[in-house]
Design a binder for these strands. Structure first.
Lengths: 232, 232
DNA sequence: CCGGATCCGAATCGATACTG
DNA sequence: CAGTATCGATTCGGATCCGG
């Protein structure tokens, strides 16, 4: 076990010994969305070998990052401890940093519900949102569908389907103000490279129903400025 | 090369593909202190195999994180690009997070000048420092010696010796207000587990010269509150 | 000494199959 | 659903070597 030690007495070193292993940070990313079963994690990380997933979950438990919680109605979930949840600013900052380097998707690349949920959180600008009216979006990317509700400085993202809303999830009532679909090119809207109008012209965005002018508000609310990675 | 891909189109994933490999984040940590030669990095990371160091440096260059700069007076240094420097909040947040889980040092663990420099940066509380008078410390831990100058919200850490001040380094003029030596137990002072007075009683801290009452100010300026990881 | 490159055994990872 | 077991493919670690 000491073979993985970096041999330094330092906080950064201790941290990467805990969550620097391959896949570990992505497991944490998905658990930041909410508690997940083993199978949920496997689906959200399609390329993870199952032995690695179980090994990481064991290590993260030993490290006090993750807790294994038996469920009342059979089954069990993994959830972040308080300590694990403190990684949120790290994951968000990493997401903003990586965002700038993202090119176009590889053919093999997928978009998962949890990764898109966290991506919206990384791009969310609370300061901008507070000075804007509340808005209620439904966003479709590939085969994931999210309800995205912005109210003041608050952001609430709910995963719709497929599949049925996961553990603890609750589908919001009411109709969204805007339903729209996007391809991976939505990245260029978030970065400001494309205005919503241009994105529609290039078939990156398509309004399904609702008030199309809300796309502007969406773009102002969710934005990652190249060069600004500062964490929340 | 695609073998290392996590197969997701996501900012976090892109980030860990760039700096998630073993040792990469620690190389960035040291480069955040300043440009370093190959040999400096090797000394600052005593356990890194040289082939891994050169591989990582190559990858970090391809990723736009690190730049290789020939030096006028022979030799060359590696330095962070602007993009690489944007990892500072990530590294600081990781350092604060890992700090809380640090136990006592393993016998093999060393403290390097760069890791201690970054540790001070992670623990620095600008808000607290602004409301305190300026102070000028000299800190010795194991065989590293640092000049730590706090002025308002500003922090300046200079590595003294050994060896001679590195590239671009400049030894501050004047005398420090306080010179003190610490063991690894200084962690418990930073966490608030120990007051400076208790630390002296337990031989964790020893004043070499100067105004011993400044230790209180040091403890107020450098502090990591368990449970508070929020990034700068 | 600086800045690596090379070689090789050990450990880890990835893919698939299988089980309570 | 929640993992183990197995095994070939990679990567890592440790040591040595090499050209300036």
């Amino acid at each position: 076990m000491a073979s993985r030690s970096y041999g330094q007495y330092c906080g950064v070193t201790t941290a990467v010994e805990l969550i620097g292993e391959r896949w570990a940070m992505l497991i944490v990313r998905d658990l930041l969305v909410g508690p997940r079963r083993y199978t949920d994690l496997k689906q959200g990380l399609p390329k993870i070998p199952t032995n690695i997933l179980s090994t990481r979950l064991k290590e993260l438990q030993e490290g006090g990052v993750v807790r294994r919680v038996p469920l009342m109605n059979c089954g069990l979930v993994y959830e972040l401890t308080d300590y694990g949840r403190q990684l949120e600013p790290v994951v968000l900052a990493l997401g903003r940093w990586g965002f700038q380097q993202m090119g176009d998707p590889q053919p093999e690349d997928v978009v998962t519900a949890d990764s898109l949920t966290m991506a919206l959180r990384t791009a969310f600008r609370a300061e901008a949102a507070t000075s804007l009216p509340a808005a209620d979006y439904e966003l479709h990317v590939a085969d994931v569908a999210l309800r995205v509700q912005v109210d003041g400085a608050g952001l609430r993202v709910t995963q719709l389907a497929p599949p049925a809303p996961p553990v603890g999830g609750r589908v919001p009532d009411g109709e969204p103000d805007l339903v729209f679909a996007a391809g991976p090119g939505i990245r260029r809207v978030i970065s400001g490279e494309l205005t919503p109008a241009q994105a529609i012209d290039e078939d990156v965005l398509a309004v399904v129903s609702g008030d199309a002018t809300l796309l502007e508000r969406f773009a102002q609310t969710f934005h990652i400025d190249p060069g600004v990675v500062l964490a929340a």
